[in-house]
Design a protein around this nucleic acid. Structure first.
Lengths: 238, 238
DNA sequence: CAATAGTGTCAAATATTCGTCATATGCCCC
DNA sequence: GGGGCATATGACGAATATTTGACACTATTG
């Protein structure tokens, strides 16, 4: 998932420089140079992070920061302040008002990116790792939660590990033996056919539609070879 | 609760300066100038944050950072790198290796404190003596008060810490072992099943409705994995 | 120092998940 | 079209994991 960044800045050349670098790094950028508008955009666009200049029109950056923190909808939005005021007192004031990081101009775009990533790494683990996704099936490994098209799917521990293994190796075909090694453990003695049963349980749970009916199967049976996530174009489209 | 800070630094005058300022601000400080020892202390002392100098004995700061991130026990420990190397490339390397913030010498102690607070505000909201809230359950960590839908909930000390831990990491699943480490302390020998009992007591206290009846459970049991705050959409709606 | 609240263990009661089997169904090749 | 396999499916007792109530013991409080 791409992270969306709200850039609040009124210096045209800086906007260009920062936008260019952010987009190059795979972020979506929304821009404004106006403090009031920044507050509106923060609510409406639901950005993952705000870069906030101190000197902007209508409302100072620090005031925007304060208001963002006060509104429940944006109280947790990560904020990186970015400004020409290099004064120690200002930096401290910015941080105490609720900014997560503070950089003074002139700054290195690469360092800005690195700091943004550091903040996001903390705040949106989902944007980093722990999150696996495939054709509408999403797994959060830290929360131990699986959803299909947004609806929670109930899985037993073994089915959970099995699905994780498939999601970690999309498309690849695994023999029953390989699956037993990877999912059950190398030294467990279990019938190979047991895998079939768990594949069945996994299919049943994940393919169950909202109205009790069947969604397209996401596991491909490869006769005489094993199973894999179905990465064929038809399955993807579904 | 006072936050404990591990200061990894070998310049005596800096140690003194930083320690003085941290203690004045109400932090507990643990110190070492040795990289290997830093790793041991990070595990044993369970600090809330590490201040890490780049140039230290035995292992470089960056290597310590890398290893802290790699070990599951310390992977989430906040790290502020602090060093004379002001090189942009070094700063970026530090941030990319997993540091949460990066300051270069010479630095202002007040700014260091402000940055530490900014990081802790994110990572350990409870240390700031704030308000934690989730789905109608509110905890005032300074007043040691918990309410559900406005009604006060009576909790024992252990249940309180347990709930706080969940509120600080919403949605994340913790094994019994992790909970014992985090809530009871690393060196306490207690049966893992004891966790179940406290989960039960916590549930009983918090889920008790006004008319003596049951509110929806806010803790999710993840079979064979542990427990978590229930952040599923269904639970949120309730 | 008595009263009360809080803790950690245990064991019985439940609840869920697992592995296997027998049978049904499908697929491929002759 | 008919073997001969391979996979799918439903059922079930066994194995695991969690919930719960009771109890003895330890802090804490006044």
């Amino acid at each position: 998932m791409r992270a969306k960044i709200l850039l609040v800045e009124d210096d045209a050349s800086l906007i260009e420089l920062v936008t260019y670098n952010l987009e190059k790094e795979g972020f979506d950028v929304v821009r404004t140079g106006d403090g009031e508008e920044a507050l509106t955009l923060a609510e409406e666009e639901k950005p993952d992070l705000v870069i906030l200049d101190w000197m902007i029109a209508n409302l100072s950056g620090i005031e925007v920061c304060r208001r963002l923190r006060r509104s429940p909808a944006t109280a947790n939005l990560p904020i990186v302040m970015l400004t020409a005021r290099g004064d120690e007192a200002d930096r401290i004031r910015g941080l105490e008002t609720g900014a997560d990081d503070y950089m003074t101009k002139p700054f290195s775009p690469r360092e800005l990116i690195a700091r943004i990533r550091a903040v996001l790494r903390r705040l949106r683990p989902a944007l980093q790792g722990g999150q696996l996704e495939f054709a509408g099936i999403a797994m959060d490994t830290t929360a131990h939660r699986v959803t299909r098209d947004g609806r929670t799917v109930q899985l037993g521990p073994t089915e959970f590990r099995l699905l994780r293994h498939f999601l970690e190796h999309p498309g690849r075909v695994f023999s029953r033996e390989q699956l037993l090694d990877a999912v059950w453990g190398r030294d467990v003695y279990v019938e190979q056919r047991t895998v079939d049963v768990h594949i069945r349980r996994l299919r049943k749970a994940v393919n169950a539609g909202p109205a009790g009916e069947e969604l397209p199967d996401f596991i491909r049976t490869v006769r005489s070879a094993g199973y894999s996530l179905d990465t064929s174009p038809e399955a993807q489209a579904a």
